[in-house]
Amino acid sequence: MLTATDWSAIRLTFELAGVTTLLLLVLGTPIAWWLARTRSAWKGAVGAVVALPIVLPPTVIGFYLLVAMGPNGSVGKLTESLGLGVLPFTFAGLVVASVFYSLPFVVQPIQNAFEAIGERPLEAAATLRASPMDTFFSVVLPLARPGYLTATVLGFAHTVGEFGVVLMIGGNIPDKTRVVSVQIYDHVEAMDYAQAHWLAAGMVVFSFAVLLLLYTLNPTGRRRA
C-alpha cells in the first residue's frame, strides 16, 4: 500500500494544484477578458504565448524556467534582489512553474465563456446603470460560470498531472517538491512496480473522476444564451 512518503507526495500535489488553480483563476481572468474583448493587433501574439505550454514539451518549459529562475537568470536575479532567494527547488518555484504550465488550460475556457456571452448582455447592463466593474461581477461572472468550472477542473487536473516541469526544477525534495508524478517515476525507475501501481492507478482513478465530474456538471461546455 501507500507509504508515508507517498502520502506526503499526494498531499503536496493537491496543495500545489490548489494554490496554482486559485492563482490562475485570479491571473487568468483579466488575461481571458482582454483576449476575449480586444481588437488589438497584439491579440494573436498574446494568445499564442498563452497557448505555448500546450505545444511545448514540458522539458523545454522546465529547462528555460530552471535557467531563468536560477541565480544567473533574469528572474532569479530579480527574486534575489527582492530578498526572495532563487525559486528552483522550492514550493514557490513549483507554483510559478505550474502557473505558467497550466495557464492555457485556465485562460482558454474562461476566454471562450467570455466570448460566448457576446456584447448584448453587457450593453443591456450598461443601459440599466451598471458600471463596467459592476457588470463584470453581476452579469459576466455568473454567465461565465460553466467556463470557470471547466477552467478550475482542467487547471487543477493538469497541475496534478504535471511531471516534466517539476522534474526539471523541483529537485525531488520530500514535502517540498516531490509530487505524485515524480514519486511514481521514482518507483518505476527503482523497479518498485508494486508501489508504482498503487499511485499510478490512483492517478487514473482521480483523473477519470475529475473528467466525469466535468462532463456531468457541464455536459456540452456551452451555455444557452
Partner: peptide, 13 residues
C-alpha cells in the same frame, strides 16, 4: 539535497 533523476540532471542543476 536536491536530487536529479539521473546524473545528467544532477549536472544540470
Amino acid at each position: 539535497f536536491v536530487q536529479g533523476e539521473n546524473i545528467a540532471q544532477t549536472y544540470q542543476f
